[in-house]
Amino acid sequence: TPAPVEPGEDGRYTIVLGDSYPVGHPISEHGAEYFMERAEKLSGGRITFEYYPSEQMGAADELIDFTGAGVVDMASVAPAYVPAKLPMSGVADLPGMVSSSCEGALATEALMSEGGVLFEEEFQRYGVRPLVIGLIPSYELMTGSTEVTAPDQAQGMQLRSSGGTIDGVVTSLGASPVSMPAPEMYEAISRGTVDGTVLAPLSALPYRLDEAARHSTLGANLGSFTNTYSISEDVWDGLPADLRDALGTAGRDTTRHLCAALDEENTASRKSLAEGGMVFHRLTGTQRERWAEVTGPAQRQWAEHVESIGRPGSDALDSMHDELERVRDDRE
């Protein structure tokens, strides 16, 4: 078993934090960096960090293991990257589930805290504890040359998919998910190898998909991307109670700061993409309903698939809906 973090001679604890996002990515800037600043302040300087961004300390799909093994103390853990380990924790990623980053993050936060179904059933098994939750919301259908405003127009298309729940969305549209590494996506769309992809504007911008894809829906709400910053349970247990409180508070503060920032950045990214020549087709109310009709069954189907591998998928789905309702009520 890995050793817990020992305080240095000056009584300070140094936490090694690794993630998979490039410096300047909103999740890094408003997630990791904000959290570190907050935690250092709340702990009165008794907690300091060593931060390794850009997959320096492990690939996106391995960081959960690096944390569990005690190689890093805290890391970005995103359910979409580890579908075999956290098959249910990406429940907020389902199409039509959340309407904003904040709503989704706050609902997920409850389910990923002690007593919540996602923490008890999944994170705990891997010896990690989510402190910060961040959601990139509003996945849209981005296409190379064909304008799409109704779901049936996507039928028969080949769409690059990051896998997992997005595969399910693509399939529910009657299109085929094509898997390929993200760096190949740009050229594949611009050369017509695939017809397009399902992605959030915020995630499309670093790849400059505005140069490759001409069209995008606006308001199709095809899914989200959930990320957490999770700390090793061994490290957590080894900290004095007041520092655990400081980290917990810093995490909750960051979740709230990050979700506002992600909603803003997603809109800003959409504007940048539009300036670069990507045409966003804003869906009308009736058009949105048609998308919801197609993607709605995808949620139940997801729960069934998760149940089929022996995990309480319906439980997770229902809890998510309950929490979302609670969050919506609270915010009114």
Partner: peptide, 24 residues
């Protein structure tokens, strides 16, 4: 260790995605 870990935790991607739903 990793093989045993994946075995005991019953790691497997859920079906329905494009990926193969084979034990890790």
């Amino acid at each position: 260790a990793t093989t045993a870990h994946a075995w005991t935790l019953g790691e497997i991607p859920a079906p329905g995605g494009g990926a193969l739903s084979w034990p890790v």
